[in-house]
Design a protein around this nucleic acid. Structure first.
Lengths: 229, 229
DNA sequence: TGGTGTGAAACTTTTCACAGCT
DNA sequence: AGCTGTGAAAAGTTTCACACCA
């Protein structure tokens, strides 16, 4: 399955779940296109990688497609996650409702600061770094989130890998090096803003010259990354 | 400039600034590759879109390249931003040091909840939604961040556009529809985890069959999105 | 009739490999 | 000798357009 398709499946899943909640049982690729902002041909091709789950002339069965996408993404089970870094961002992530709603359970929150260790965040006690291996082992944690300052990120990644974690989501603005077989995804909040300023500036520059400010399709640079990308 | 290149420039910028802080004045594409996790040929091609700023046999002048990338991304000025949604995430973003460090100034924090309006977050008073146009006008805000629940996101986007904002960073798990000429980028925190579970599950499935768990290059799925994605 | 599934074409992005400059 | 800049090839992704089926 192409990587680009994997990146879009979570979006389709969200849209389908919303439809199901509204009682909709069937949807065409065109309806999904409107709701997801992805064009319908792309959706059909993406969904075809899952198998032939649509019906010609009718569309897709919402409930069935939800099931198939969940299966493909490995979301038929809950996933325990651990967050390292109980600062601003780490605490917000620990409290973030969107994780639980989509099957992610924060089972551990770790910080080096003795002033933070022992405090409770959303019912979860902050624990010291030396507890990481125990947390990972006890809950069979497969995914770790790094929400520390950049300077600590590599050290934390090493500790996570040593504890057996092989999927890392990194919020620290740092490039991590990890052994083969470990997946890392990075979300850098400021980077997203910097990409917006590029297009914003370009708009301003064009306007100054009196050029039309938008292309034929009405866009200026692409929408969104899913965190993204 | 290709969109893929624009997405990587902020990463190069971060790496170059780190080098400059360590007193490094020159860097080859290979050194930048190691520090950024992007291969050197790609870096050279990306940088060539900025112009011919390297020196054959030597490499790139760190300070000069920083300046050129900043110029290209529109980062020679500070950018005032407004955050709508003062919940978990909105508050964490308002306090996030990484924004200020990279030239983004949070000048407004807005929430509909009367219980939150008037409170202070990091020295910033939470204001009601009807103040949005005034905040945008007063500070010439060009970028808005949506940190509300999904249900409110479209309404907030409409209000931002009406107030004159044309670049939106959306953290709500919802697809926004905006008029032509408005840029939207989306960061969905749960989506990043869902992509990780896809590769995590795949790894588990392969291991069960006794197949080698990593590819020749030692990876399983791509590193990172700079948010993505 | 309506809408999927999919080859083929178009486009984008990455990688290769080396000429050419310092 | 070393490293950039870049054509050309390869790989990946999107879009088109229509056969085919319910």
């Amino acid at each position: 399955m192409p990587e680009a398709t994997v990146r879009r499946l979570p979006t389709y899943l969200r849209v389908l779940v919303e439809l199901a909640e509204r009682g909709v049982t069937r949807a065409s690729s065109e309806e999904l296109a409107v709701a997801s902002g992805v064009n319908s041909a792309k959706i059909r091709k993406d969904l075809s990688y899952l198998g032939s789950y649509g019906t010609r002339g009718i569309g897709y069965d919402v409930a069935y497609l939800i099931h198939q996408i969940r299966r493909e993404l490995g979301l038929t089970q809950d996933w325990p996650i651990v967050i390292v870094g109980a600062g601003n961002l780490g605490q917000a992530l620990a409290r973030y409702r969107g994780f639980a709603e989509r099957g992610f359970r924060v089972v551990g929150l770790v910080d080096t600061d003795p002033g933070k260790v022992g405090r409770e965040v959303d019912g979860l006690r902050v624990r010291p770094p030396e507890d990481l291996p125990a947390i990972v082992a006890e809950h069979r944690v497969a995914i770790g989130i790094i929400a520390t300052p950049a300077a600590a990120a590599q050290e934390v990644a090493d500790a996570m890998v040593a504890a057996g974690i092989r999927s890392i989501l990194n919020f620290a603005p740092a490039t991590l090096s990890v052994p083969p077989g470990v997946s890392v995804r990075k979300v850098d909040l400021a980077v997203e803003l910097q990409i917006l300023t590029y297009y914003e500036q370009r708009r301003a520059a064009l306007a100054e010259v009196g050029a039309p400010v938008v292309g034929d399709d009405g866009t200026l640079g692409p929408d969104s990354v899913s965190a993204g990308a």
